[in-house]
Design a protein around this nucleic acid. Structure first.
Lengths: 253, 253
DNA sequence: AATATTATGCTCATTTATAATCACATATGC
DNA sequence: GCATATGTGATTATAAATGAGCATAATATT
């Protein structure tokens, strides 16, 4: 490992939003702390990190615009857990679709499976996943919605028709027994429909606040859903309603 | 084994994401370390790689952190100017293809035209452009190459076939009168070909170090090119050779 | 507030890689 | 044939990267 490679990796860790510690980096790269300090010093001189006592943090707004992250802030810890649960459903060798969205975004950081293929219509997620050596990433293409960074529309749907995958993780803004899964944008809804048609097994990921909500555009009815991954604040009575319709409800690891 | 063959092989190793060591390359090719160093030096001057103490690494895994690497990346200022010139070619209402790559990436920040549609296969560029209200962004989709963050392959080509645009800005690693435009990766070359077929007018963007270089995979011949945007270090004699073949050469604003 | 703990900057020594030579061989053009 | 250019290998002084030791500075604990 060259000094430059090490610095690039450190820069990546920091720009991913993680803060780093000198001691940890030294262990991770198997070099002395002096070396790590020198790395951080040169990186700070180049301008993109901010050193702290004990390590370093990012000093710029990371690649994703604030509005995108602001959204993520709401229910962030719940979404994080949901992401972790969903990632655990992915096995070695799987082919998977991951929808764009603030909740599905969290799945990426917890994927441990090797040798998997992921199709996604999320620009930031595709970027993140493509840094992993164990994941082949395919994007759907399509028009980008500027606020969600989702690739949608006929192009995305055409791409999805070319594939057949094991599992699809779909986000939704509303879930109800009567109206199924819904989302505000009709084009995005169509893209989600195409994802569902492409997958053998359909997982809906949505925090508990989305239940008993109905938004504008229809994605699918409850019977089309194999499994809903949500957080533990969903009441047992509510969960049972879905279970009686044959939908698995998972609320914890 | 010719020197050029050796360089091409080294370039391929690096563009596959591997880092290379001078000592290993010397053993592998059965030449002295001096020779390997000379190879790497010339490759670095051509902007293809980033040398390190002991070897070299790829210089293209850096797209989301431009400010950190700008100083380290060779020809950054030239690429910046080229990007500015290219952006000036885009008029209000145009439909445009922008290829992935370190040079084309610079086009994004200078686009001033309103009400335009941009098709791109670059993940970071699509992200950046989608923040602009005046630009409709469409991505090609496809497999992501982890080091360049380019979406390539049959999916990308299929998407491109659905459209017809006014202008395409294509990057290339080598340009020569005899061999036309070339690039190291054959799948990426095919995607570039599809872009060229989709566009009425073809612009090649490449700094002057790319001239009289030939890399592995063929993109298009000189006669397929309408205009080459490069920097002012290209000699007038060289430029005239292309002009005589009907190619516009632009080296400054 | 005093003290303990931890992190830092600095210097130095060691290892390893590099640039700058020179020398030699092999093409290329006149 | 001769001059010139190009590619290569060997040599060596110079430079870069690293780790260790230690006094000083920053944080944590009592």
């Amino acid at each position: 490992m060259f000094a430059e490679e090490r610095k690039i990796k450190i820069a990546k860790m920091i720009s991913d939003g993680k803060s780093v510690r000198v001691s940890e980096l030294a262990k991770l790269f198997k070099v002395s702390e002096s070396t790590i300090r020198r790395d951080l010093m040169s990186m700070e001189n180049h301008g993109n990190i901010l050193r702290t006592h004990g390590g370093a943090v990012s000093n710029v707004n990371t690649q994703f615009e604030p509005s995108f992250f602001e959204k993520q802030e709401k229910h962030a810890d719940k979404k994080d857990t949901i992401g972790k649960i969903a990632a655990g459903m992915i096995n070695d060798g799987d082919t998977v679709i991951i929808d764009s969205g603030t909740t599905t975004q969290y799945i990426g950081k917890y994927i441990k499976a090797k040798n998997i293929t992921i199709i996604t219509n999320s620009v930031p997620l595709s970027y993140e996943l493509s840094n992993s050596e164990d994941i082949e990433v395919i994007t759907t293409g399509g028009m980008i919605r500027s606020n969600t960074k989702a690739m949608i529309g006929p192009t995305a749907e055409m791409t999805l028709k070319q594939f057949r995958v094991d599992k699809a993780f779909i986000g939704a803004n509303g879930i109800s027994i009567e109206c199924g899964a819904t989302t505000p944008n009709i084009i995005e809804a169509n893209t989600k429909k195409a994802m569902i048609e492409t997958s053998k097994k359909v997982y809906i990921v949505a925090d508990s606040s989305k239940f008993n909500e109905v938004t504008f555009a229809f994605i699918c009815s409850v019977k089309d859903i194999d499994c809903i991954i949500t957080d533990s604040e969903l009441s047992e009575e509510e969960a049972d309603k879905y279970r009686q319709l044959g939908v698995d409800i998972i609320t914890r690891l």
